[in-house]
Computed example of a mutant assay.
Amino acid sequence: MKFISIVMGSKSDYEVMKSCSETLEAFGVSYEMIVSSAHRSPERTASYIQEAEKKGAQCFIAAAGMAAHLAGVLSSKTVKPIIGVPMSASALGGIDALLSTVQMPAGMPVATVAIGKAGAINSAYLAMQILALNNEELATKLKEDRVSKAKKVETDSLEIETIISA
């Protein structure tokens, strides 16, 4: 079974990352979600990556705050795509996690999305776009979603124009 793996550095990341899993569910994309810390449980993290790949993980989404080394650790253990979601877990509002996630050495790529909920949702979309390279049904669903979003903007615009004209 092919799926997307969502790895959170802490249970506290779940409230934000459930937006990621809900987005995947809306498109019928399988996922697995676990908590495993790059710092507090490095052995668990390393063994999970191997297990997930054997089970069919096609892409990994790593959510972590503060030092946010989780995405980098995943990148060091697999050649599958890694998407990092910086979490707002410190007094710095997630900027520390963003900088940590985006500053990977050459040859160890991590695609990095926005801090928090928007990043969680976009990580799901980016992972699905990666899967859609070899899945025409998913590609079609993503295209239809874009059309739907464009129509919503047009509808919202017409409603505002009507209010302004009145």
Rank of each mutant, 00 (worst) to 15 (best):
M33D: 12
D96P: 08
G56R: 03
I83T: 04
E137V: 02
L98Y: 07
F60Y: 12
G65L: 03
T101R: 10
K151T: 10
E154V: 09
V153S: 04
E25V: 04
M87K: 07
S36W: 00
A67R: 07
L158P: 02
K11T: 12
G116K: 02
E53H: 08
M33I: 15
V153G: 02
I130M: 15
D145V: 01
A97H: 12
F3S: 09
F3L: 12
K141H: 07
E159K: 13
G116H: 02
S10P: 04
Y31T: 09
E53L: 10
G84Q: 11
I61D: 03
K80F: 06
G119E: 09
S10D: 05
L74T: 13
V113S: 09
A67F: 13
K141M: 14
P42I: 07
K117G: 06
L131S: 02
D96T: 06
E136C: 09
V79C: 10
N135W: 01
D145W: 03
C59Y: 03
A91T: 12
M87V: 05
S10V: 01
V79I: 13
A26R: 15
K151H: 11
Y48C: 07
D96L: 08
A124P: 14
M128R: 00
E43A: 11
S123D: 00
K55V: 05
V79Q: 11
A150C: 07
K55H: 09
A52G: 11
A52T: 03
A106R: 15
V102H: 06
I163M: 13
S76Y: 10
G28A: 12
K151V: 07
G9Y: 00
M128V: 01
S47E: 15
I82K: 03
A71I: 01
Q58L: 15
E25R: 14
I49K: 05
Q58I: 05
T23F: 00
A57K: 01
H39I: 02
V153M: 09
I49F: 06
G28Q: 04
A118H: 12
A166E: 13
I164N: 09
E22F: 01
F3N: 07
T140P: 01
T140R: 10
C20I: 00
A38T: 01
M108F: 14
I163L: 15
N122G: 00
L142P: 02
F27Q: 04
T23D: 08
I164S: 08
V79N: 14
H69L: 02
S19Q: 14
A64F: 03
V73F: 10
M17Q: 04
K149L: 13
E22Q: 14
E161G: 05
T78D: 06
A120K: 10
E43G: 12
A63C: 12
K54W: 05
K152D: 12
T23C: 03
L98Q: 06
N135L: 02
I95S: 03
V85G: 11
E25A: 12
A91G: 11
A166H: 14
D13N: 04
I61F: 03
E51F: 11
G65D: 05
V7P: 10
A97C: 10
S41Q: 04
S148D: 10
M128G: 01
E22P: 03
